[in-house]
Design a protein around this nucleic acid. Structure first.
Length: 581
RNA sequence: GCUCCUGUAGUUCAAUGGAUAGAACAUUGGUCUCCGGAACCGAAGAUCUGGGUUCGACUCCCAGCGGGAGCGCCA
């Protein structure tokens, strides 16, 4: 008989089944099984307490009845504790069995497959063309990529779409600046994207001080949107310059999109939005603009969703509606996940409400819509980092600095490593550190950008996790064994370190589930860090290379499984590992 | 003005209403002839304030104080 990958539903089931045979319980009983503090056991079920309360019964008595009725098992011991907790402690034999079955990487993946696979569009990164990405742009890219990987791992079909901001007001401003300065886009110097950004900044300053310039910027935008060949040509060049700068960063971050259908792609599709919403009386004219109100909503009854500006131009509400419609129609998307800054929450709430009404009126299936929002990266002044006026740290500079610092450490530890290899390792370590720094905290929190935080390599960081992986590789190398070997002669875990590491391995499915349910990768980070800590502690206390075969095989099995969970988990975060570092 | 988010050791973070709030950095004391010190073991240190709900509250509710965001033609 094989063991369940995720023991929580298994134990939940067992408890519900057993409760159904007892008169004292009804189907209102929910076991609420969860992982337990190691002082009390491996899993605990708390559900008897609220149930007993509801039924006006003594929780301890009720819990004891349930425990007495549980079928006997060699897999665990059960005991009543505290006011009515039911604690399960897994037997060493069971721990060994679970690890043997689920530990190898392929088994982790096959066990993690969900029953139903759906088609999910993940909309992330989405930088604006004509500006370079600064450190504030890292979150969408990294969080989005991790979420895409987490869902793909469980069998969902993922479409990664980079919804570039390539059709907004910024082009009016930029075109104005290009024309006023008579700049040639073929000759922008060594750092064309930086030059474009300077021009944009100049243009922005111009329109603030001069109304005529503002009017002209609007004109340039309208000309572009009307298909003026000159402006269109400039726009294409701007787009190319921007994309090559983005691709540079995506390559470093190991992020690849299936599509980069920016706002411009939808420019001929916005009329359908106007028609659809007008035909179904979802929108109305207001002060010359076309807007949507949601009378049933406390805020959006009065706060409009503007889908066409009074000058006739579309805006991001329009393209987002067109985009949503396209993804449903052309890709049969069943779910769409938008990864953006939390300041856009109102926008997405309005978008989802509007799309809901539109789709319902047209009798189309609305995909499940999720706005995965994250906190803002702040500057030292506690204000959001902005391109418009200041000069924030460029994302590429952050990444390069991370690689540089990691390279110094690699060189320090391996004096005669070839330059190529130093670079390879430094990229994996430095970029891993940056990614982990962002992913390891709850995405909804704002944080102040700091080099120290982003580039830390000690403590709760990616290099610490990578180090554990490298150490495990080293053990197998020294013993001339492979993590994929079979460890059939392993004995069950006995010692404290063996046991603690074993139980930690069993919690991987719980962390994965939580990260998936809340679309928050930091749950996975926390788990992986705890696992690595448990491993480091084990490593310090128990020697793996011992003569006694059964102990050695168990410890090798623990190493192999730890490594496969770490590799798998870090992979879901978009973080690579090394055999040596 | 309306709405939303947020307040946890010195600092940066964690904790599906559950048992003694968990880490990292910094401070500090140890471990080193070790299968890799990017490590391990220890010490000290925290839930903004006041009410309420609950068997049980960092978590939920109310009020206050502090920080931040959004709110008609930016995305």
């Amino acid at each position: 008989m094989s063991t369940s990958f995720d023991l929580v539903p298994a134990l939940d089931n067992l408890l519900v089944q057993t409760a159904s045979t007892l008169d004292e319980f009804t189907d209102l009983f929910e076991p609420q099984t969860r992982s337990a503090d190691e002082r009390f056991g491996d899993f605990q079920a708390n559900g008897v307490l609220p149930f007993a309360k509801r039924m006006g019964k003594n929780p301890r008595e009720l819990a004891q009845k349930l425990i007495d009725a549980l079928p006997g098992s060699d897999n665990w011991t059960v005991e009543l504790a505290g006011p009515g907790f039911i604690n399960f402690t897994l037997s060493p034999e069971f721990l060994l069995k679970w690890i043997g079955e689920h530990g190898p990487a392929e088994n982790l993946k096959s066990a993690a497959q969900t029953a139903e696979h759906s088609k999910v569009v993940v909309d992330y990164s989405s930088p604006n063309t004509a500006k370079q990405m600064h450190v504030g742009h890292i979150r969408s890219t990294i969080i989005g990529e991790s979420i895409a990987r987490i869902l793909a791992f469980q069998g969902h079909e993922i479409i990664r779409d980079n919804h570039l901001g390539d059709w907004g007001t910024q082009f009016g401003i930029l075109l104005l600046a290009i024309k006023e300065e008579a700049v040639s886009l073929d000759n922008l110097g060594d750092d064309p994207i930086a030059r474009l950004e300077d021009l944009y900044r100049q243009g922005n300053a111009r329109i603030k001080e001069d109304e005529a310039a503002l009017a002209q910027a609007r004109q340039e935008l309208v000309k572009l949107q009307d298909g003026d060949p000159g402006n269109l040509q400039l726009w294409e060049k701007i787009r190319d310059i921007s994309m090559s700068s983005f691709l540079n960063i995506y390559e470093l971050l190991d992020v690849r999109f299936d599509h980069a259908l920016g706002e411009s792609f939808y420019r001929d599709k916005v009329d359908d939005v106007y028609h659809g919403l007008t035909r179904h009386h979802i929108c109305q004219e207001d002060d010359g603009a076309l807007v949507v109100f949601h009378p049933e909503h406390k805020r959006f009854a009065k706060q409009p969703f503007i889908i066409r500006k009074s000058d006739g131009a579309s805006n991001y509400a329009t393209t987002d509606l067109a985009t949503l419609s396209y993804r449903q129609k052309e890709w049969q998307a069943e779910q769409i996940i938008y990864v953006t800054d939390g300041r856009q929450r109102d926008h997405f709430e309005q978008l989802f409400l509007t799309a809901g009404k539109w789709f319902e009126a047209e009798e189309k299936t609305l995909p499940k819509l999720d706005h995965v929002w994250f906190g803002t990266i702040l500057g030292d002044d506690n204000k959001a980092i902005k391109t418009r006026d200041g000069k924030p740290v460029k994302l590429i500079d952050l990444l390069e600095e991370a690689i540089k610092r990691a390279a110094e450490m690699v060189r320090q530890k391996n004096a005669d490593l070839p330059q190529e290899e130093v670079k390879r390792r430094a990229e994996i370590i430095g970029l891993g550190a940056v990614k982990y720094a962002d992913l390891s905290q709850d995405r909804t929190l704002d944080y102040v950008f700091s080099w120290e935080k982003m580039l830390a390599m000690q403590g709760n960081t990616a290099p610490y996790l990578q180090y554990a992986v490298a150490r495990i590789h080293s053990i197998f190398r020294k013993m001339n064994r492979q993590p994929t070997d079979s460890f059939a002669n392993a004995r069950p875990p006995e010692s404290d370190p063996e046991r603690k590491l074993s139980r930690k391995l069993l919690f991987f499915p719980l962390a994965l589930k939580q990260a998936t349910r809340e679309l928050k990768p930091h749950f996975l980070c926390t788990y992986l860090y705890e696992l690595a800590t448990e491993f480091s502690s084990f490593y310090n206390q128990e020697k793996v290379m011992v003569d006694e075969e059964e102990a050695r095989e168990l410890r090798l099995l623990l190493c192999a499984s730890t490594q496969s969970v770490l590799l798998t988990g870090l992979g879901l975060l978009g973080i690579e590992t090394l055999e040596e570092m």
